[in-house]
């Protein structure tokens, strides 16, 4: 059978990542995006946004968490071709792009050494960011729930909870 693309068979794809638009040709070439590419793959291999990590590549560990229209999702479980017209935010998109000042949540992770190996950290920060966007003053249990899909094997959980709670508290005072 010959594979033909139907209505969606536009040959280009535009992604909005961290406020910037990126256009790609659809295809299998080294600089193209294939229909089978996950968003995580495209972010890493096409845009060089390697802050988004791939660990389980099966939707279970949360290392690839990014925000889509403000909500935390696992970018390994999304096809890139289905992400057009959405606002995608990655770890590289946090903080102030003009002043280069990092997000208070990131600063709080630094202040609490809320990581060990740091591999899961970007995903954890993105999940926490989504929570704080929706609920600026969460309880500790609400933070646990929001991070319940994020793997951390070093067990930095306790410091992470401290960091998120402290960031929320600071945010609330502003």
């Amino acid at each position: 059978m010959t594979l033909t693309l139907e209505k969606s068979s536009h040959s280009t794809l535009t992604l909005t990542v961290n406020g910037e638009k990126h256009s790609f040709m659809l295809g299998e070439g080294p600089h193209e995006v294939a229909s089978s590419h996950t968003l995580a793959h495209t972010l890493r291999e096409r845009l060089g946004l390697t802050g988004t990590k791939i660990s389980c590549d099966n939707g279970a560990c949360g290392c690839c968490t990014v925000l889509i229209n403000g909500k935390a999702v696992q970018s390994c479980m999304l096809l890139t071709v289905e992400c057009e017209e959405k606002e995608i935010t990655t770890i590289e998109g946090l903080g102030d792009p003009v002043t280069n000042v990092i997000d208070p949540l990131q600063q709080s992770f630094i202040d609490h050494t809320a990581f060990q190996c740091g591999f899961c950290t970007p995903g954890i920060i993105m999940s926490a960011k989504a929570l704080l966007n929706e609920n600026p003053s969460p309880t500790r249990d609400e933070v646990k729930e929001a991070l319940s899909g994020n793997f951390c094997r070093c067990i930095s959980h306790y410091h992470v909870l401290d960091a998120v709670m402290a960031a929320a508290k600071k945010g609330g005072n502003q």
Partner: peptide, 11 residues
Amino acid sequence: PRKDALDIVTG
């Protein structure tokens, strides 16, 4: 702070 902290939290 860990010397590598900024790199870790910014990805």
